[in-house]
Simulated assay, not measured.
Amino acid sequence: MNSSRRQRQQHVVTPRIPAVTMAIALVAGVFLLVPFIALLTGITWTELPALLTSQSAVDALWLSLRTATVATLICIVLGVPLALVLARTDFPGRNLTRVIVLVPLVIPPVVAGIALTEAFGRRGLIGEHLSVWGIEIAFSTTAVVLAQTFVALPFMVTTLESHLASAGQHYERIAQSLGASTWRTFSTITLPLLRPGLLSGTVLTFARALGEFGATITFAGSLQGTTRTMPLEIYLARETDPDSAVALSLVLILVAVLVIAVAYFRPSTQRS
């Protein structure tokens, strides 16, 4: 049996790609790689430790990691049910709901920040009522989390919905035809099927939250240790200390590479 399997594998022909396609792909790869190479060459390596251990840099990185983690957890709690509803149910207004989910992906982040301010600011639709109870959201760490959640949630929902659509409902229908309850089907079949998509969605969501800038500075401002995340710190440093901005940019890139590596470069569990 093993010999016949090897013979079948030997007869498998890998489809060839036109040379022009390979050339264009090479250009695309170089285009994406060159800016990172330029960034590395622009770093003053002897000054790197001092730049990365400054109090403002440490505060910004710690705040970014904390708020991005909280925003990602919120996106998981909100995004999984919303993706399931969009993928598994047919209700009036489903297409409109999809449009609403996708809007934060296409509008400029500054516009998202303005919308959040109009909703949760001191004089906003909801914020003015919260102010009566002494709850101020705008220009606080909570505002940073809300801004990151608002712009990152669509990544979670779209990733999960696409994964659910590709997985289909075959196993779930079989389980329910055999008498399994809705909750048992959901917990033993739907959730395990959702795991790969959830992992990918979590990575994309965290990366988007970590890199959020426009909505954050508009809705939360830039107060060191409270609302000044790493992207804001880089932006401010770019005007006064370009070397520091380059060094801090390297940190964000390394964090992004680490997150992607953890999610996408797992040892294969498939056996040949």
Rank of each mutant, 00 (worst) to 15 (best):
M1T: 07
S3I: 10
Q7S: 14
Q9R: 11
H11Q: 15
V13P: 07
V13Q: 14
R16W: 07
V20A: 14
T21D: 14
A25D: 11
L26I: 12
V30W: 02
F31Y: 07
L32V: 05
L39A: 06
T41Q: 14
T41K: 12
G42P: 04
I43V: 14
T46S: 12
E47V: 05
P49I: 04
L51R: 10
L51P: 05
S54Q: 12
Q55R: 11
Q55M: 11
D59M: 10
W62Y: 06
L65N: 09
T69S: 14
V70S: 07
A71D: 11
T72S: 11
C75D: 15
C75Y: 03
C75K: 10
C75F: 03
L78P: 12
G79A: 09
V80G: 10
P81S: 10
L82P: 13
A83R: 03
V85P: 06
A87Q: 12
G93Y: 08
T97S: 15
T97N: 08
V99L: 15
P104L: 04
P108N: 03
G113I: 00
E118I: 06
A119E: 13
F120V: 03
R122V: 08
I126P: 11
E128F: 03
L130K: 09
L130Q: 11
S131N: 13
V132D: 14
W133K: 09
W133R: 10
G134K: 09
S140K: 04
T141K: 04
T142N: 14
V145N: 05
V145T: 08
A147K: 01
A147D: 11
Q148P: 02
T149D: 07
L153I: 03
L153Q: 01
F155I: 01
M156Y: 01
M156T: 05
V157R: 08
V157L: 12
T159I: 03
H163I: 03
H163W: 05
H163E: 07
L164W: 05
A165S: 13
Q169F: 08
Q169R: 13
Q176K: 08
T182I: 11
F186D: 12
S187A: 13
P192N: 04
R195I: 14
G197H: 01
L198K: 00
L199E: 12
S200H: 03
T202P: 02
V203W: 02
T205Q: 03
F206G: 06
A207G: 09
R208Q: 06
A209S: 08
L210R: 01
L210D: 05
A215K: 03
T216N: 06
A220D: 06
S222P: 01
L223F: 09
L223N: 09
Q224M: 05
G225E: 08
T227Y: 03
R228G: 06
M230D: 00
L232E: 09
I234P: 02
Y235W: 11
A237L: 00
D241E: 13
S244M: 12
S249F: 02
V251E: 07
A256W: 03
A256D: 08
L258S: 11
A261P: 08
Y264F: 11
R266P: 05
R266Q: 14
T269Y: 00
T269S: 12
Q270R: 06
S272E: 09
